[in-house]
Amino acid sequence: MAAIDQAPAPPALRILRSTLWAGARLVSIALLLTAWELVARSGIVTPFQLPALSAVLERIWNDAASGDLAINTSVTLYRAMVGFFIAAVGGVVLGMAMSRSAAARWFFDPIISVGFPMPKIAFLPVVILWLGVFDISKITMIVFDAIFPVVAATVIAIQGVERELIWSARNMGAGQRELLWQIVLPAALPTIMTGLQVALPLSLIVAVVTEMLMGGYGLGGAMMTASRFANSTGVFAGIVEIAVVGYALVKAMALIRRRLLIWHQESQNFPSP
């Protein structure tokens, strides 16, 4: 994260400098939070428009104490993760099938290329019509949204495997099965992971929207209830809770990527972005 156009400095100075910059980053977050509290208390805005940070934290604390926070978080996470895993496995399998069979490619290629850029969320009322308002239709919506980036990434990844790599493996006696599991999939993994890293936040976005629309337990549902009762502290508490869950999921995924791709160039160049 270095800015362009800066002169190299001696090592000791560089370490000192980077520690200072890292400290400055923390200050920036602290500034944001302080500004929130000050603006909320100053009277420029009403507490309805922006409740004080302290009030929001208190609300979160109460949610946690009553157990609501744990229930809502786990319900939302459950839906998002089940949907994500189905999309991940289904997407990789479908992508592999499209790479290997001309018939599968002929049938699914137009569906994927037309379906990927579509706003699938518009189909939500149709899915409700078919499957009701419970978990099954929420998870269906998540899979429907998250599977496209996974399929597209898998197809591109497998196409991008160098023929020399495959030839080398065949040269050493690898058969079709071994080529797929030992060569093609590992070589395609970095790009497939990138697809999964797009699909994961998408799963969470859709989980929250479906909960907002269909109600019931879950972080999105709780936020919507608070909104209906004009309880803006509850709404802001919801944002903070959802932000924390989103942040944790994205960081966890990045960690998994680094672990799985320890051999990949990027993990050597950037130990911790």
């Binding site: 160098e162 030839w167 080398s168 040269n171 060569i183 590992p186 070589a187 993994l189 051999w263 990949h264």
Partner: peptide, 19 residues
């Protein structure tokens, strides 16, 4: 077809980067 009686070495190495 390819066989282990003939070994090949490529210009860009073709090493398995995950091994």
């Amino acid at each position: 077809g390819p066989g282990p009686d003939r070994g090949i070495v490529f210009q860009h190495f073709a090493l398995f980067p995950w091994k």
